[in-house]
Amino acid sequence: MHLFLASATLPDTITFAIAAAICIVGSLGVVVSTHPVHSALMLVMTLFGVAVLFVEENAQFLAAVQVIVYAGAIVVLFLFVIMLLGVDRAESIAADPLRGQRLTALLLGLLVLAEVVLLGRGRWPTGAHSTAGALNQGTKPNVNVLGTSIFTTFLLPFEITSALLVIAIVGAVVLARRPRRPVGGASSPIPSAKGLTGPPEAEGDDTDRGPLQMGVEDLEDSDGLEAGRPGVPATHGQEGSKS
């Protein structure tokens, strides 16, 4: 917007251009990069660009909250999930998981773009620019205005929103909780586990190939050689000893 206003100063314009470039590169990166972690990092970059734009528009509080909540909490959560679920592999873009997904995405994207243009052009959607008056009143920082507005005029919506969040958290805890195992000798899970794995001899073998063994195998795999299978390195070794 600043580019088209006469009042925009040079630093404003430069800041806007840089931040906008960061946003665009970042959001393209989110879509284009094949690696989930890289996508998440690009998202962080976009969020930072948007935060700079907020500061540029004199909405410092919004900028800070943007970084604290989105970059600091939500994307960190994304990263946790990506890392812990082990989906941190590159995906091929060629495969289309849902038929017609790309076309729909394109159409929806255009729709959102149209909406943004409409919102940006004027007051048509709501009829007013602000519901709580000017955000910057004299020397007071706009945090004060925002706080007063949230905790007086909009107290009820604010509280309802927070109640909604609490409900969501409780719901997540309830859903994620496992049903408690019945405590007691007869119904303890150990005999059933035995039943699953077959005769005790085999089980004993498996136990010997426990986590320790797995760790060593993993380390061998991680040498980066394709010849992770038992046969192949053996032949390599023989050749080496012959020559």
Binding site: R178, P179, R181, P182, V183, G184, G185, S187, S188, P189, I190, S192, A193, K194, G195, L196, T197, P200, E203, G204, D206, T207, D208, G210, P211
Partner: peptide
């Protein structure tokens, strides 16, 4: 205490494996 008691009844070699499997929720059904 329960787990410990159950463990002491078992062959010590398979304890590790059981403790790995004990977290399987489906285990209780069979």
């Amino acid at each position: 205490v329960e787990t410990e008691r159950a463990r002491s009844r078992k062959d010590p070699r398979s304890v590790l494996f059981d403790s790995l499997l004990a977290d399987e929720p489906a285990g209780g059904e069979h």
